[in-house]
């Protein structure tokens, strides 16, 4: 697991709001919210791509909690697993 990379889905826009952030997936036209500060920090860490283990350490989360968080954000398609982030030229 240590070498798995997490990256932010380049098709999703994240906008800070008072309650956390609003997110919009341009591929699915899905609008959703993130309210958990931990999830927002993970999304920020993954902006330029990050090793899964590094992200876990940086967040200081319990392993089970971190796994749930990653699963939830992958399920929302916000996080991509094992793929390098794509630059704007590759979209």
């Amino acid at each position: 697991m240590a070498n798995v990379r997490l990256s932010l889905n380049p098709r999703i826009s994240i906008r800070p709001e008072s309650f956390g952030a609003l997110c919009y997936n341009f591929a699915t036209r899905d609008l959703f919210l993130i309210k958990s500060p931990l999830a927002l920090r993970l999304a920020e860490l993954a902006r330029d791509g990050i090793d899964r283990g590094e992200a876990e350490k940086a967040l200081g989360a319990q392993p089970a909690q971190f796994t749930r968080l990653v699963d939830a954000l992958v399920n929302k398609q916000l996080l991509l697993v094992g793929e390098a982030p794509l630059g704007p030229d590759h979209e």
Binding site: R15, P16, E17, S18, F19, L22, Y24, L31, L33, K35
Partner: peptide, 15 residues
Amino acid sequence: NSLAAALRAGLAAPI
């Protein structure tokens, strides 16, 4: 309810 209240209070920008 808290989310509904946040949306009713307006966002930083329109959706």
